[in-house]
Design a protein around this nucleic acid. Structure first.
Lengths: 336, 336
DNA sequence: AAATCTTGCTTCATCGATTGAGCAAGTGCG
DNA sequence: CGCACTTGCTCAATCGATGAAGCAAGATTT
């Protein structure tokens, strides 16, 4: 590693010397409370000018060491490979900056060990708050942070120890399922039970979506056997091979499918292309998540879009109001 | 903002007191060079145990203030809304961590002012190195960082003042164009000139891709008028309305199109759906960038996938070898 | 026995910014 | 003139971790 820095950086002491004043005055001027510290306007202007000329940059480490709050807000995300998490991160950065906070983001690739490691690192960087997004074990993160006096908020997947902001998975799934059923009925005449593909049996979102999925079937008086549910994880390859296996098993296959994410949808579509029992047009699909490219895949795919702006707005509200109780805010997703 | 931290955190002084030793010994033990500092194994173990019991977390700010290198490596990215940048960020984080560096990532939404602001902030955080990815003005960033003695590397888009790692846009575009032309020929019989949609006329990548696009036409002895090039930016809406306008203008329309990114492709496909002169199947499309969902859109879309692992590997090589000369490394993209 | 070396620590200055306390000069008032 | 008050600054301690220098006690050499 050669990331060598040659010259040493300009400090407030250098500026003080150049301006013929004290470091204390320079600090007061540059961090904006020179009025409170009774520094004259002339000196303030002089210091500001010299700082600009010298290309002075504050040493955050030194500044943060002295201050009690860092105004750093950490976010742990599982992946950057889909529009949902991408927009969460992008909007989070923007909103955090607008509120005067510094966003620090880490991607853990759904690796539980990395999640904990990431939380620990964030604590070292003195974050004021950690947002655990889609974490496999949010409560572990909360415990770790609580021990350091740092609060956490869960996003996308809820935890039991900190406030959570998630989509209303039940309602979204119920409505999505209803639409797929209706589409199946209109296009194929039959009202047969759908299949549910993707997600992890243990995770809260998958369970809630499954509940909505079952409810929609019940709403239409359709019997649903347990073997129609294939919670094979989110990865495309997993979905593809699970469908392959399922097809080989000889169990009945539905022409309507509820797919748990756009990532899983990739696997489902690939399987349909390569080995699907009938043409792709003979399927009615629904996807819990939105991607504009999926919208272009054809009219036979319904989508539910999670309301990222509303979720983040709620999240920052929780931060601002200092809520610590493990409440769950369910944000209605957008259909169409 | 209430991000209040209640208790104050455990420091090495607290641990020293508990262990009946000095802060210096605690520091030496916890940062791993206790052997060099001749601390006994017993004391080392005692300190380690107490640190764990107390859930001690290093104060990075204090540590970094004292050290000369921060081992923080910054990356500036324009967007998180596509697979290309998503995989760059994800792999960058992984590789940086493997090399013992701490990745600090900031998204600037292609806003030139934010880019500069982001670079400045990174300097405040004492980064050892900044990677400017797809920056609108990479040289400005390099200048700013150089003034603070911080090196930069340009990724995706080259600059004149620092080493750059980019795709071989010319070769990639030439081959992609060739394939679209062949596909057009096979499917529609004709060898007509293609259209080029998306990108910004000024940016290096667009210019190089255009050069490859023109070269491929020349290779096949096809005349290409300038009005077939629509460099309307990357946004889908821009592409959609530009195509709309172009169709209205009465100028000749090609059945083959070279689209400059998956994001732009969204707009192209939307326009084809809504207002395309003939069915989508009557078009041969090529896209400079890869998205697995696009691969599912049909067989009539060729794609070029930029070789992100090779690009990042090269980038870290440049860092390790301490190269400062503004060389340009062109990484061949992957076709299929 | 004296000189030297080794072991295992501690002491203290330092990194750069922040902030309470303090101080000198000037202003206002009776 | 003397006292209080304001203005405009400087001084010095501090945040937590680090590491060069130093020191005491025991081990080894001459």
């Amino acid at each position: 590693m050669s990331l060598d820095r040659q010259q040493k950086r300009t400090t407030i002491y250098d500026l003080a010397e150049l301006a013929g004043t004290s470091a204390s005055a320079v600090s007061a001027v540059l961090n904006g409370n020179w009025k409170k510290r009774r520094i004259s306007k002339q000196l303030a202007e002089k210091i500001t000018r010299i700082a600009e000329e010298q290309g002075y940059a504050l040493n955050m480490q030194a500044s943060l060491l002295r201050r009690e709050k860092s105004h750093i807000i950490g976010m742990i995300v599982p992946k950057y490979d889909n529009r949902y998490f991408g927009s969460i991160v992008e909007l989070f950065e923007t909103m955090a900056r607008d509120k005067g906070l510094f966003p620090l983001i880490t991607c853990t690739r759904r690796d539980p060990a990395l999640e904990i490691e990431a939380a620990r690192t964030m604590l070292s960087y003195q974050v004021d708050c950690v947002i655990a997004t889609g974490a496999t074990d949010p409560d572990r993160i909360t415990e770790l942070c609580a021990a350091a006096g740092v609060r956490t908020i869960n996003l996308d997947l809820p935890g039991k120890l900190a406030p959570s902001v998630i989509s209303d998975n039940f309602a979204g799934a119920r409505e999505l399922t209803r639409r797929i059923l209706v589409s199946c009925h209109q296009r194929f005449g039959a009202m047969e039970p759908l299949m549910f593909v993707g997600g992890r049996g243990g995770d809260h979102n998958t369970m809630e979506r499954l509940r909505g999925f079952r409810q929609a079937h019940a709403d239409h008086g359709i019997d649903l056997e347990d073997d129609r549910v294939i919670a094979c994880g989110y990865a495309p390859e997993k979905a593809q091979s699970a469908l392959q296996e399922r097809a080989a098993s000889g169990l009945p296959f539905s022409r309507g499918m509820f797919v748990n994410s756009t990532i899983t949808l990739e696997g489902v579509l690939r399987w349909l292309r390569l080995a699907g029992p009938v043409s792709e047009q003979e399927f009615a699909l629904g996807c819990f998540d939105y991607d504009p490219l999926v919208a272009l895949l054809g009219d036979n795919i319904e989508m539910v879009r999670q309301d990222v702006p509303a979720m983040l707005t709620r999240m920052f509200e929780l931060i601002e109001h200092g809520s610590f109780e493990p409440t769950v805010s369910e944000i209605p997703p957008l259909l169409r």
